[in-house]
């Protein structure tokens, strides 16, 4: 092997030798999305560790703020973009609160990536119907961006995204620019509109009446608050989609990230290693899932 390959292999082995060990990563960009959610761009500092870091859409990392703790955060950027990751983070707890007080250039810790992501390769050549509720757009954003970067490999791509109010719409600027694209069928809806809102109003499930689905060639991807899954799955099933073509991503309390600490149990599985992405066939056979 050439010296670079040897060095990278060593870095990879280092990455996996102690999966509890966070690696320093610099915050390279901070974009406020709403008054609670911020998009952080992070770049692992060590060149070899950064090169060894490979992820799939739907996977997550553990963000480490030494002295405060760690939080599992799904990756929002696409694997087609290397060298950095984007995390869409809600200021909701100790770690995410501490992260929100950090500035561009500050250093935090990163571990991962962990978990099973969306079956991107399997989805190729098919239509994709993505349904997000609230912060559930965060992991789906990675998949959406990845599809975007290899758009010619997919059929029809439909995005249904529900938020509570217009101020809570995440990635609003980008979605606004996408509204008139004909290669993405994008529908945004809010529960509580204001005078500026010209999108749909009501639950995300209402949007299904305007979506045509070819069940044999469509994959579904769902992420949102716990209460949302069964209603969205029911809509997809009503469109004739098979259970094993519908993918759901679950939020749980992944503490270690690799199947040891027990906190993210869903029925007989762990969200961190068996998920967080499950297909609905698996999820319906999983107690506590939905």
């Amino acid at each position: 092997m050439n010296p670079t390959a040897v060095r990278r292999l060593a870095a990879y082995e280092q990455l996996s030798a102690n999966p509890y060990r966070p690696w320093p990563a610099r915050i390279t960009s901070i974009t406020e999305l709403t008054d609670k959610e911020t998009l952080f761009e992070l770049r692992l500092i060590d060149d070899d560790v950064r090169d060894a870091f490979k992820f799939e859409s739907g996977q997550f990392v553990e963000v480490s703020i030494f002295g405060v703790g760690e939080a599992p955060i799904s990756i929002s950027s696409a694997p087609s973009k290397q060298g950095f990751i984007e995390l869409c983070v809600r200021n909701a707890g100790d770690v995410t609160g501490a992260l929100h007080s950090r500035q561009c250039g500050d250093i935090v810790g990163l571990r991962g990536p962990f978990g099973r992501g969306f079956p991107f390769e399997e989805m190729k050549g098919n239509d994709v119907l993505l349904v997000a509720g609230g912060l559930g757009i965060a992991p789906l954003k990675s998949l959406i961006n990845h599809i975007h970067d290899t758009r010619h490999e997919f059929g029809k791509v439909t995005i249904l995204y529900g938020s509570r109010s217009p101020e809570e719409v995440l990635f609003a600027r980008q979605f606004d620019m996408w509204r008139h694209r004909d290669d993405f069928d994008l529908h945004l809806t809010v529960d509580q509109p204001d005078e500026t809102w010209d999108g749909d109003v009501g639950l995300v499930t209402n949007l299904f009446e305007r979506v045509d689905v070819d069940p044999a060639k469509t994959f579904g991807a769902i992420c949102g608050p716990p209460v949302m899954y069964k209603y969205v799955v029911a809509e997809m099933r009503a469109k004739g989609m098979e259970a094993d073509r519908i993918y759901v991503s679950f939020e749980r309390r992944m503490k270690c990230g690799f199947g040891k600490c027990g906190h993210c149990g869903v029925g007989h599985q762990y969200a961190c290693i068996d998920g967080p992405v499950f297909n609905y066939w698996e999820a319906m056979n999983l107690q506590e899932a939905m």
């Binding site: 509890y20 030494f66 002295g67 405060v68 703790g69 503490k255 270690c256 040891k260 600490c261 906190h263």
Partner: peptide, 9 residues
């Protein structure tokens, strides 16, 4: 075997 992880400053 379940555990928690805590930081002590």
């Amino acid at each position: 075997y379940c555990f928690d992880v805590r930081d002590r400053l």
